[in-house]
Structures are given as structure tokens and as C-alpha cells.
Design a protein around this nucleic acid. Sequence first.
DNA 1: CCACACACCTGTGCGC
DNA 2: TGCGCACAGGTGTGTG
Length: 294
Amino acid sequence: MPELPEVEVVRRGLERWVSGRTVAAAEVFHPRAVRRHVPGAEEFVSRLRGRTVGTAQRRGKYLWLPLDGSDAVLAHLGMSGQLLVTDPGSPPEKHLRIRLSFTDGGPELRFVDQRTFGHVLVTALADSAGRPVPEPITHIAADPFEEHFDAGVFARRLRARQTEIKRALLDQSLVSGIGNIYADEALWRAGLHGARPTERLTGPKIAELLDAAREVMSEALEEGGTSFDSLYVNVNGESGYFDRSLAVYGRRDLPCRRCGTPIVRESFMNRSSYSCPRCQPRPRGLRTPGRAGP
DNA sequence: CCACACACCTGTGCGC
DNA sequence: TGCGCACAGGTGTGTG
């Protein structure tokens, strides 16, 4: 379940191991892995041959490798995607989907993905929110660590939404990089229940929430990325498993680290939300599912 | 334009 | 032992 910190760990790995090298050949082992590459798998392969990779880039949960010229290889890891740097001769992984070899005969880059929610494609770059990004992700908002991220614009757009705060945090067109785990953690730090209506949040509270999101993701990044199962592996194949910094996620019935109240799990958007019922009281009245408004 | 439900996937763990 | 099912959940698409 890679979110921003995990993806950043992968980006750093790509920058170290892949940037500056020239692709000798690409192979696609599963068509679903390149389903977003509109011209098809064969074109994907021919488009990559002989191209030299620039400095690895990231926005939110998306990664890309600029190519000489004006396009880039774009990747999203989805739920279970991994980018592995491996010895050229090593045996194929069970869920190996794409392999890139390089002209220097050095390590290969492999895209391995069990659940096939992730994908890779080659695309042109376009301008978005102050910098060039791959065309298919121009609708993805800047993440909170980008230089051009505008907290004022974020607060204004957030309050204009008629929705709940956790939904908004997960909306990558509003702010990118935050997934289910760090959304819960940021909400806990800010003392907000995920069902709080966005329209009634104050400017200072939104700023506090944004700071909390930045903090929790920075801390996870320092620890090498967080993930809740063994599926997430960084670019060198090492597990990014780490959960010491998590205060609520996956901690049902365990004591809140702030007040000791047992953490509760609630179902939300077909997934789990964890919160402290004392530190993060559920809003009363309006837009509580199954209840009439005042 | 906006909000939301749902499809897309596979492996794991649990109850019966 | 094996079967069925809930669960993990990010994103694009379709619907109202």
C-alpha cells in the first residue's frame, strides 16, 4: 500500500540505480501492466529501446523517469507494485510484469505486481502546477512537499467541497500522496474525525491538519517508508515494513497513545478507518450516514 | 462540475 | 481438509 513516503523511497532508489543509464531492451510479461499505454505493449517496448533515463521524479504516489527528448516512463505502484533492481540473470519473480535491461549490462529494473492495480506507460510531458509532469497525471494535485504546493489554495478548495474530511484527504486531485494509512494518522494528530464536514473546518484547523500530514509522512520517510504487509518492497528489494510511528492505523482495541481510550475501527468507503473516539469525536447531526440532519 | 458507488485484481486468513 | 467469503485499497469510470 505505498503512499507518498514509500514511493519517495522508491524514487530515491531509482535515482541512484537507474538514472543516467540507457535502456537496451524492455519486455512486457503481462498486458495489464501496460494497459494505460494506449498505443499498446509493442509500441511501449519499441519506444523505450535506446533511451537514456534522466533524474527520477515523483508527484504524490506517481513516479516517472524522464527520457532523453520530451517524454517519460510513468509508473504507479497501485496496491502491491514493486520496482526491483536485480542481477540480470536472477530468476523471474512470480509476479514479474515488466523488465528493463540496460546497455551497460548492469542490474535490471523489474516491475513486479501481484494484484496488478499498478501500471507503467510511456508518455509526453506537459505543464501542471508549476512543473512538467506526464500528461496522464496533469489532474493530480501537487503533494504537500512540492515547492509549488499552495496551502491557501488547498484550504479554499477543501472548504468548497461538500464532503467529509477523510474523503477529501484521499482525493488526489485536491492534494496528492495521502492514502488510507496516513489520512488516519494525520486526522488523529489533528484531533479530527474523518466524517467531519469540510465546509465547517477553520483555516487554522486545516493548516494544522496539513502540518500533521506532512509530519507523519516525513517521519515515515525517515524510517524508510511504512507499509502494513510484506508486499511493499523498495527498489533494492528490501522490505519497507515499519509501523512504530502509527498511532491509530491497524490498532483496533489498542489504547490511544494520547489518552488510552481503545481505538475503534469503522467501515468507510469499503475500507477501514481507525480513530480514537475520545480525541476524535464523531461529528453529530448533518451528513452522518443513516441519520437525519437537525 | 460535483459527489459517490463500483470495478478492477490476487493472496491471506478465518469460520464452518 | 477444503470451501466460501471478507478483507486489503488506489484509481478510473460510470451514474445521478
